[in-house]
Simulated assay, not measured.
Amino acid sequence: MADRSELADFLRTRRNRLRPSDVGLPDGINRRAPGLRRQEVAQLAGISVDYYIRMEQARGAKPSRQVLTALARALILTVDERDYLFRMGGENPPTVVGPNRTVPQSVRIILDLLATPAYVVDASYEILAWNDPAIPFIGDLDAHPDHERNMVRWMFIQAGDHPQWSDESILHFARSTVADLRSAYARYPGNPVLARLITELLGTAPRFADMWNSHDVEVRRGHNKRIDHPALGLLEFECQVLHISDTDQRMIVYCATPGTPTDTAFRTLAAARPTAP
């Protein structure tokens, strides 16, 4: 249900926080009020000034989805703000078509600065970016096409009698991963990438099918991991999951307890990374 009073207040505060230069307009002089003028917002959104004024006065007809979309764009709203605008306008927020695969440049900088293995995955568990210390764990993915970089596919491609399935921690990780994938499936209904992945695994991986058919749902959280690495030996660390705002991406960071052999191994990997010329 629309809340005209809250919608009016929200539009007014979002308009007042913007400078003309933020939206490509000249700042000018002798502006009596902070932020954009009502007529500037109306112009940017492609609606009449009178219509917009009535919205800020909590009057007039209920805004359409097209109007709300145009206002979200004109006011440079974040995803959360856009969803709030739609709800106050009496509409369901827009459905996101599919997982975001564009890694923000700032996140890539953080990856390169980390002295521990780390990588970024999207909601379908495709690895999008990684740092050099992560290569001994996930491989040199530059040599593989995008569709071969999926962590869920890697996990369930193993045969049902593979030794990994006798490890209770791996089973727990697999179940929680499938539950998280189901959550993503609900967020992106009809997305062809997710649909193909799930259909493929339902037909080729009986263990995945059993876990999928349990209908468990959860969002990925951190967990402890123990690996007997062929080159680095026994490693014990926490996989910390950092959610990247406005992208539905996660950065997976391997965190070892300071002073442990695993910490020493991670530091050795970081020291061995190539330096820029």
Rank of each mutant, 00 (worst) to 15 (best):
I127V: 15
Y84H: 15
V41I: 10
W154S: 11
D9G: 15
L44V: 03
A179Q: 00
S64V: 08
P192F: 13
D3T: 01
V219K: 14
P94R: 10
F156R: 01
L114H: 00
L18C: 07
D210W: 06
T262H: 04
E6V: 03
D140T: 00
R31E: 01
V97C: 08
H172L: 15
G24Q: 04
A45G: 04
R31W: 12
P192I: 07
P104V: 02
T13D: 13
L202D: 03
M88A: 04
P133D: 12
R37K: 01
V253Y: 02
E200Y: 13
G60N: 03
N213K: 05
R82E: 13
V219G: 03
G139N: 01
L194S: 00
E238K: 12
D263N: 09
G222A: 04
C255E: 12
E236S: 13
N213Y: 07
P192N: 04
L44R: 11
G28F: 04
T102L: 14
A271G: 01
G28D: 07
I76F: 10
Q43H: 11
Q240C: 08
P34F: 00
D146Q: 14
D80A: 15
P26K: 06
G60R: 03
E126L: 14
M1F: 09
E148I: 02
T95A: 15
Q249M: 03
D22Q: 01
Q158L: 15
V241W: 05
S169L: 14
I110Q: 01
